[in-house]
């Protein structure tokens, strides 16, 4: 703060005297971090306390509302080998999760790639958009479970219908977001690129696509969310091993603690993936807000 230190001592801000600006800023940053950590942690503890007391009150049976400790035990059980049984149904929790994440990566990845490609074409060629947009909107309104049976009839019960379901679920949000963003790519920048001698393809690659990136990222996050919420549906049939299959199988045996462990695993991994996507977006789109 050069102006403050240049002023006569009597005029200086006493707080400045006591503590230089950088340290004050650092403290307020840790204050923010505390708030960001403390509040969610507090609400989690409160939730656990309420859960424990509801379970202890015994209004509902343990099958309906198992106490937190039982769920923790279930978590340990499915993560270790106990009484000669490996995890849940011969597979550890992390392996169930890994298999499901692989399905999501393949399925949603495919849907996202196709969605970006379709959006690029639809956003640049008017009649293609008019032709396909109603179909995509229709597909988007369908709950994935509605076409899952059809996929089973067509593709069997192995990996294919699961991957396809996730791809079909992830496709519309990305296609819609990309179409809108590409169609709205700033004219004046496209004109500038053409004036520099860029071809139509150059303009798409160097202006249209980058200008659409922030919106595409929003679409991708939506798509991953939709794929995630379709996971249990995708693993309803022959889903073991897989986290959704595990939840469904445990539900068949009224094994509520394992169901809850599965749900928590799906939720936490979903949050982590969304956070990673946000970070990726900040790294890839540093000009956000400056376009």
């Amino acid at each position: 703060m050069p102006p403050a230190s240049a002023a006569p001592a009597a005029l200086r801000d006493p707080v400045d005297e006591a503590e230089p600006a950088p340290r004050r800023r650092a403290r307020s940053r840790t204050g923010g971090a505390l708030r960001r950590l403390a509040l969610p942690l507090g609400s989690l503890l409160l939730f656990l306390a309420v859960w424990q007391s509801v379970a202890a009150a015994g209004t509902w049976s343990e099958t309906l509302v198992p106490p937190p400790a039982r769920v923790w035990d279930a978590f340990v059980d499915v993560s270790t080998t106990h009484d000669g049984v490996r995890g849940y149904n011969g597979t550890y929790l992390v392996e169930h999760l890994g298999i499901s994440l692989r399905r999501i990566a393949l399925g949603a990845g495919l849907g996202i790639a196709l969605g970006v490609a379709a959006g690029l074409v639809m956003g640049t060629v008017g009649w293609v958009r008019s032709l396909f947009e109603p179909w995509i909107t229709f597909l988007r309104t369908l709950p994935p479970l509605a076409y899952f049976s059809l996929l089973i009839v067509w593709l069997g019960i192995d990996e294919e219908p699961k991957i396809t379901l996730l791809a079909v679920a992830a496709f519309p949000p990305v296609a819609v977001a990309t179409t809108a963003a590409v169609a709205a790519a700033p004219r004046h920048l496209q004109e500038a690129a053409r004036a520099l001698g860029g071809s139509r393809r150059d303009v798409v690659r160097d202006v249209v696509l980058p200008s659409a990136l922030p919106e595409i990222f929003t679409g991708v996050r939506l798509a991953v969310g939709v794929a995630y919420s379709s996971l249990v549906a995708a693993e309803l049939v022959n889903g073991l091993p897989g986290i959704g299959g595990m939840v469904k199988d445990a539900a068949n045996y009224n094994n509520t603690p394992v169901v809850l462990v599965g749900i928590a695993a799906i939720g936490v991994s979903g949050l982590l993936i969304d956070g990673a996507l946000l970070r990726l977006e900040r790294a890839v789109v540093p000009w956000r807000g400056h376009a």
Partner: peptide, 18 residues
């Protein structure tokens, strides 16, 4: 034809922010 014979400087800089 745009970009073939003439270079253009527009009223606004029109730089690519990315």
């Amino acid at each position: 034809r745009p970009g073939q014979q003439a270079g253009v400087v527009f009223q606004q800089p029109r730089l690519l922010p990315w």
